[in-house]
């Protein structure tokens, strides 16, 4: 039994209805899991001696606007013992009700979740540490969302100089 199958079977034994779909693309295994089992599965994957995914490489979020569910959160795990990588992916319908935090499983998770919150605006349940990390405290919106404009400098011409100038956000005399 290879590592891909072993993971699926272990999870199925513990959480029968957790895995919604499995996907294999370019030799990378992805398990689509139900949001409410994220923490339980992470605990299992880390503590089970046959799996021992002791390294949480990354947490990152995806925005699929205009589809529904719109957001997805990816967890990239690695097992030193089995030399195997695994991606857990969970769909998030409402960004205010994201998956449960896994900071109790891996210490680094809280820090990685903070980046997801700051740039994509997904709130991890139970993570009290979420705050603006890269952006200023008073920043509006979450820039990595697809409906967030890239931003540009509006060009001023002689006929609309005053009009554009009035909208520019710098301190005027």
């Amino acid at each position: 039994m290879n590592a891909d199958q072993r993971v699926v079977e272990k999870i199925k034994a513990a959480f029968p209805d957790a895995i919604e779909e499995t996907n294999d693309f370019r030799g990378e295994q992805t398990l689509y899991i139900n949001k409410k089992y994220v923490k339980g599965i992470c605990q299992l994957l880390k503590s089970d001696p046959d799996l021992s995914y002791k390294f949480l490489s990354d947490i990152c979020a995806d925005d699929f606007l205009p589809e529904f569910p719109r957001f997805a959160v990816n967890y990239h795990l690695y097992s030193y013992d089995k030399n195997h990588r695994l991606r857990l992916r969970t769909w998030v319908e409402d960004p205010e009700e994201g998956p449960e935090t896994i900071s109790s499983v891996w210490a680094i998770a809280s820090w990685l979740e903070m980046e997801v919150w700051d740039l994509m605006g997904i709130r991890f349940k139970g993570n009290t540490n979420l705050r603006r990390l890269f952006l200023p405290e008073d920043w509006q919106g979450h820039p990595l969302r697809k409906d967030y404009p890239l931003g540009y400098e509006e060009v001023q011409f002689s006929f609309n100089w005053q009009e554009v100038d009035a909208k520019k956000p710098y301190a005027k005399e």
């Binding site: 370019r26 990378e28 995806d62 990239h76």
Partner: peptide, 20 residues
């Protein structure tokens, strides 16, 4: 259509790129 995650050993440690 698809997504990949490629890790390399950069001088500082694991540098990885998630690309969709």
């Amino acid at each position: 259509v698809g997504y990949v995650y490629q890790s390399i050993e950069s001088p500082r440690g694991e540098f990885a790129c998630y690309l969709r």
